[in-house]
């Protein structure tokens, strides 16, 4: 996703001379080519994120389209008030690019995990929130972000995320993408954990169930229509995200359902439970620890699906 993002941004920057890229002394082996191409429009702001976010707002209020790039906690939680006051409140044309979605930085520890960013960003008025599942979605949301005149947050994964989409889907901001059609269970998923949801779907289908999968590259505005349709047309809605079950996609879907009169009979939120992960391990190790791999997902879903029927 990182490569898809930067290559897309390079294409955009060639056409739009107002695009500026700031980084917080991070981006090794990702940002170099962009910087070589646009030396006057790419800047390492140092390990000084508060200044970087404020400066991003100042640049944006002076006519620039500003992309800010760093590891997720350093461009979200650390500078939340700068984002709130300088960017969101002022409707500044700043795109915050956070890398290392969820448990990507498993070995680096809980200071580098990103399990609260969707909740933080989603709570801000004026903020559009993207969470792509693969390089294809990363390219689509990067283009969409540049076209939006206002604050955007993009939560991207790492280098070499697996492809979910075999061909380019037709994308619109605020619309979920249907990865698979089905009538028993609907998965609402965001981010690269979609790979495991596809795996879980295969296991469930082997057991005779019909599974729908909706990928949510946009978390805000949320696609209420697709959620409500799934609620009417399928028997169970499951949300899966590499994020705390508090505040992210699961919460968004729950809010849509709570506000409607179309409650599904069964629901399940899967994600990182309300806890920090101090255990060290690879990305997949930590996904396994949180029971977020295909077989865990299939097992949890089946248990709940059978229990209530």
């Amino acid at each position: 996703m990182r490569t898809a993002f930067i290559q897309t941004l390079e294409g955009l920057a060639k056409k739009n001379s107002n695009i500026v890229l700031l980084n917080g002394d991070l981006g090794f082996s990702v940002l170099e080519h962009f910087t070589e191409q646009f030396p006057s429009r790419s800047m390492n702001m140092g390990v000084a994120e508060a200044n970087m976010m404020g400066a991003a707002a100042g640049l944006a209020l002076s006519g620039k389209t500003v992309f800010v790039y760093s590891i997720i906690p350093f461009v979200t939680a650390r500078v939340y008030e700068q984002i709130r006051n300088d960017i969101a409140l002022q409707q500044a044309n700043v795109k915050i690019i956070g890398v290392g979605a969820g448990l990507v930085y498993g070995q680096l520890g809980p200071t580098h995990h990103a399990i609260d960013d969707l909740g933080l960003m989603r709570g801000l008025p004026n903020m559009t929130v993207f969470s792509p599942a693969d390089p294809v979605e990363a390219e689509l949301v990067t283009k969409a972000a540049a076209a939006i005149k206002g604050p955007v947050y993009i939560r991207i994964g790492k280098k070499g995320d697996e492809l979910i989409h075999t061909r380019k889907p037709s994308f619109r901001v605020g619309r979920a993408l249907t990865l698979r059609s089905g009538s028993d269970i609907t998965f609402c998923v965001t981010g690269s954990i979609a790979v495991h949801v596809l795996g879980a779907a295969r296991l469930l289908e082997e057991g005779g169930l019909s599974v729908r999968i909706l990928s949510f590259p946009t978390i805000k505005p949320i696609d209420a229509k697709s959620i409500l349709r799934a609620s009417r047309e399928t028997k169970m809605i499951v949300t899966v995200e590499e994020h705390s079950v508090i505040g992210g996609l699961g919460s968004s879907v729950a809010e849509v359902l709570f506000d409607s009169s179309v409650m599904p009979t069964k629901t399940l939120r899967l994600g990182v439970r309300d806890r920090f992960t101090t255990r060290a391990g690879s990305h997949e190790d930590l996904r396994a620890f949180h029971q977020l791999q295909a077989e865990h997902i299939a097992r949890h879903v089946l248990k709940k699906f059978k229990k209530q029927s």
Partner: peptide
């Protein structure tokens, strides 16, 4: 910080 961005 915002002033720095404007000056930039």
């Amino acid at each position: 910080p915002m002033g720095v961005g404007m000056a930039l």
